[in-house]
């Protein structure tokens, strides 16, 4: 899918469904690959550790994590729950494929999370963009990097 570059200072707005409530803003970290929880991340450092993952070694701490969703072990919620305790959790999550792993994970991480968007967030948002997530109103505002 190709996305037209927005006019300077323009904000792209996506509408979606609240998975878990809250409002947050921060820098986007985008991956087109699903993420494993247990065995796929280090909960103490908030980094992806999976061998062939495109984010291997990258930290999602305090980012707006934009990804297709969860895969792998049933320890997904437990591993991401632990990032909340060790203060390495993302600020918010935007994802495209619903699974029980990510739904439960979003609840126990207690961060705003959204899905079911009117536009594909993986096509619109790039790593480094500034993203405001208002899950309660079902709105995501994206300011492309270098444009804000």
């Amino acid at each position: 899918m190709s996305v037209e570059a927005p006019p300077r200072n323009d904000v792209i707005v996506l509408h979606g469904r609240k998975v878990t409530p809250g409002v947050a803003e921060g820098e986007a970290l985008v991956t087109h690959q699903t993420i494993s929880g247990w065995g796929g991340i280090n909960s103490m450092t908030g980094t992806v550790i999976e061998t062939r993952h495109e984010l291997k070694g990258v930290s999602f701490k305090d980012k707006i994590l934009v990804f297709p969703g969860a895969k792998g072990s049933s320890g997904w919620s437990g591993a991401f729950h632990t990032t909340r305790l060790s203060k390495t959790a993302p600020k918010a999550m935007l994802f495209t494929v619903m699974t029980t792993k990510i739904a439960l994970g979003a609840v126990v991480m207690r961060i705003p999370t959204m899905t079911d968007f009117d536009r594909d967030p993986l096509a619109v948002i790039e790593t480094g963009d500034w993203v405001k997530v208002d899950a309660d109103r079902g709105i995501v505002e994206v300011t492309k990097k270098g444009r804000g």
């Binding site: 997904w76 919620s77 437990g78 729950h81 029980t100 792993k101 439960l104 126990v108």
Partner: peptide
């Protein structure tokens, strides 16, 4: 336990999602 979940659903025909610890 993802390996037990897939066995339960596929080989046995039981019905479970991959639940997590909290659920």
């Amino acid at each position: 336990e993802s390996s037990a979940v897939v066995f339960c659903n596929s080989v046995i025909g039981g019905r479970t999602n991959t639940e997590g610890r909290e659920s």
